[in-house]
């Protein structure tokens, strides 16, 4: 088999090569390029898709039986192998936000140039792929627009390849596409990017694992507690059911909040297809009067 060395976990090998072998079997995080020679680590890399599917289904059945709605991803989600050693085991400790947590960093035109919102014009040539516009509004839980705030995106190119030294997926790099964009929301909370539709890509969570096409989004609100990073997906992706990162949001309605809608009003005549995706940050803690200031 061809191993796309460097996908996702492989860099763990670099500084820690001797130590990985000392991990107890069964909790061994997947190490790229290392094929287990014994069956002592059944949860390691080369689980089949069927095995992952069964784990996803089992968690989903437990969730349905429990009857308590979840709106966020599980942090402890074993089908996503890299989460095994990286999820807190204790509950989040409730804290009433105070001090700087009640405000957020300010970004402005000094930080972000207008051309950074167009990922197709950064390299003096047209990137390959389906040109698309993605736009939407950033709102807080009360429906108020998050105004003049930073939105950052990064993504693979049309072939599913990132411009990142650890991405060794043997798909072509596009010399005209980096896949990084930034913009500020407007007074209505609207962001807008012009880009190329990213391709799906393989990763090493399990054998023949593929991520549904997605764009990574990084968002700030008006309070630091609203900070979040997420991924936007495309409607009808056949990889949704197979992807443990997407399925880590166990509630189907919750995970569908990450799927953009095709919007013909956004599509541009003879130029680009259009997608709309609104983002809701968590609630703010200030009183309405404070929030208006």
């Amino acid at each position: 088999m061809t191993v796309a060395a460097g996908r996702d976990d492989s860099h763990i090998v670099i500084p820690l090569s001797g130590r990985a072998a000392l991990r107890p079997a069964g909790r061994l995080p997947y190490v790229a390029g290392v094929t287990p020679t014994t069956d002592t680590a059944p949860d390691a890399a080369l689980a089949t898709q069927a095995r992952i599917d069964a784990e996803i289904a089992g968690i989903r059945e437990e969730y349905d039986a429990a009857g308590r709605e979840e709106t966020r991803p599980r942090l402890d989600y074993a089908p996503y192998r890299s989460s095994l050693l990286r999820h807190p085991t204790k509950d989040l400790h409730h804290a009433d936000p105070e001090g700087v947590e009640l405000v957020a960093p300010v970004f402005g035109h000094r930080d972000v140039g207008p051309a950074e919102a167009d990922l197709t014009i950064q390299h003096g040539g047209d990137p390959v792929g389906e040109r698309m516009v993605v736009t939407g509004r950033v709102l807080d839980a009360d429906g108020r627009p998050v105004r003049h705030q930073l939105v950052e995106v990064w993504q693979a190119n049309a072939a599913g390849r990132y411009i990142h030294q650890r991405d060794q997926h043997p798909a072509p790099v596009d010399p005209h596409f980096t896949g990084v964009g930034r913009c500020l929301t407007d007074a209505d909370g609207t962001y807008r990017f012009t880009t190329i539709k990213p391709g799906p890509y393989p990763w090493k969570n399990h054998r023949n694992a593929w991520r549904p096409a997605h764009i990574h989004f990084s968002l700030f609100g008006t309070e630091f507690t609203q900070r979040m990073i997420t991924q936007m997906y495309f409607p009808g992706d056949p990889l949704f059911a197979l992807d443990p990162i997407y399925q880590a949001i166990v509630d189907p309605r919750a995970r569908e909040r990450l799927v953009a809608a095709y919007d013909h009003e956004v599509t541009q005549h003879e130029w680009a297809t259009g997608y709309r995706w609104d983002i809701v940050l968590t609630g703010t803690h200030r009183t309405p009067m404070e929030a208006e200031q």
């Binding site: 996908r7 966020r72 991924q231």
Partner: peptide, 17 residues
């Protein structure tokens, strides 16, 4: 109140972004 959009992992490829 609106329900917040769920987060997702930052993944491995943020380093150039």
């Amino acid at each position: 109140p609106l329900v917040a959009t769920p987060g997702q992992t930052i993944g491995p490829f943020f380093g150039y972004a």
